[in-house]
Nucleic acid binder design. Structure first.
Length: 418
DNA sequence: TCTGGGGTCCTAGGACCC
DNA sequence: TCTGGGGTCCTAGGACCC
């Protein structure tokens, strides 16, 4: 591992809210939030009242009665998030984008051109402020985890460089909740053991930690607490799954309700897969009941699929199973469809998408094999669920989106190259 | 207090194979 | 007839992240 801290973690502050305050001067200095039913992002002025992302709009208004809500300008978020990443790219190609507003960068190879990591971080922060008008916090350290912790400590609108000589001193005084992988549940378990700081976690016996949190999590947190983080910057991640979900409020758990929703979700997912020449073998559905309890049903096929109708029919059958297993649940509040075990599927993609896309041109000799695979997958489904599972489904869905499509697209991860 | 949408990884138990 | 161990895959559920 290198001696110098060259990993930057750059994180735009309260991103959506900052963009809204940038676009509309009337919102500056005010407690405001993006969203409606749910808070997608809150300004620092709102956070001072305890308003947090993910919180229901009602709860947020309780905490902060004068809170201003704005609908999102999602295309602007995409544009400005990309622009901030582009500024980082002026200094190094070694960038791992985590989300729309957050990225790691390794500047080890470019300090001779642009100065020390601290200087590069300062330049990036100034340029994002000057050119885009947005606050961004940056952490600089020897490891990804420490850089990320540092950027959280730096917020709002700050820079923290962790000196390698004192990194454990820096880390060990901080609360465990700042660690990557410690959420509310883990934090609660640790607290029950009297472990409140990262230092206390570091000094807890590894065995008891693994017993408390499981082998993998115990091991990982122990490593992170001692700053034994060996993860490198990864520029491109291959997608392992793709999914879509829709909150329904509270609707009767009937075929008339779930069929059109599942067809819409299947179409969203498979069209994304087909666009990247991908297909997947495992179809998973989530059903959340009115009481917020959720169940999962999954089925793995012999061959990968990406056709809307196949995924939709299997999803419907899985939902029927889930409902049959919970006969007392009369209402559902959310449905989700996801496809995993994803593989590249250039040839079969063309076949399965026949009639759905424009791509009908293909070498005739491949048709047989592709059809065979599709049929085999269908046969597997029929073996499991009965003859008439796979058929033609019509229903088109006209529905009022609970969330704008632009936000869905924002949340989608790029499934990969191509 | 009834909460969006898109992901990753881990665990435990069971089926199945050698 | 009863009994072992190791490995892989699948399913269901859960925690966590942005």
């Amino acid at each position: 591992m290198s001696k110098e801290p060259t990993i930057l973690h750059a994180d735009l502050d309260s991103f959506y809210a900052s963009v809204e305050q940038l676009l509309n001067p009337d919102l500056r200095g005010k407690a405001m939030a993006v969203g409606g039913g749910v808070v997608l992002a809150a300004s620092y002025e709102a956070k001072a009242f305890g308003v947090r992302g993910g919180m229901s709009g009602r709860k947020a208004r309780e905490l902060c009665p004068h809170l201003l809500f704005v609908r999102g300008n999602f295309d602007q978020y995409q544009r400005l998030g990309d622009a901030a990443i582009a500024i980082l790219e002026d200094y190094t190609p070694l960038i791992e984008r985590i989300s729309i507003d957050e990225a790691f960068a390794d500047v080890a190879g470019c300090t001779h051109l642009f100065g020390s990591p601290r200087e590069i971080a300062e330049i990036v922060r100034r340029r994002v402020r000057d050119e885009l008008g947005l606050p961004i916090s940056v952490g600089v350290a020897r490891t990804k985890h420490l850089a990320k912790v540092a950027s959280q400590v730096a917020k709002p609108d700050g820079l923290v460089v962790v000196d390698p000589a004192t990194e454990l001193d820096f880390l060990h005084d901080l609360p465990v909740g700042l660690m990557w992988g410690v959420g509310p549940v883990t934090e609660g378990k640790l607290k029950a053991e009297g472990i409140l700081t990262i230092g206390q976690l570091a000094n807890a016996p590894g065995r008891s930690l693994r017993g408390l949190l499981g082998d993998a999590a115990g091991e990982k947190l122990s490593d992170l607490a001692w700053n034994r983080d060996t993860r490198a910057i990864v520029r491109e991640h291959r997608a392992r799954s793709a999914g879509a979900q829709s909150a329904l409020g509270r609707q009767p758990a009937t075929e008339a309700v779930f069929r059109p929703v599942l067809q819409h979700l299947a179409d969203r997912v498979t069209s994304r897969l087909r666009a990247k020449s991908l297909a997947g073998r495992t179809i998973t559905v989530h059903v959340r009941f009115a009481d917020m309890r959720a169940v999962t049903r999954a089925m793995t096929l012999d061959a990968p699929v990406s056709a809307t109708l196949i995924v939709a029919e299997i999803a419907e059958e899985l939902v029927r199973q889930a409902l049959a297993d919970h006969p007392k649940e009369k209402s559902i509040s959310l449905l989700a469809v996801s496809v995993s075990h994803i593989e590249e599927q250039r040839v079969i993609q063309l076949e399965l998408s026949l009639g759905l896309d424009d791509e009908k041109r293909r070498p005739g000799s491949r048709q047989g094999a592709a059809r065979w695979s599709a049929d085999r997958a269908m046969d597997k489904a029929r073996t499991r669920f009965g003859r008439d599972v796979i058929g033609y489904a019509a229903a088109h869905l006209e529905r009022k989106n609970s969330v704008p499509d632009a936000f869905r697209e924002l949340a989608e991860k790029d499934l990969g190259r191509n």
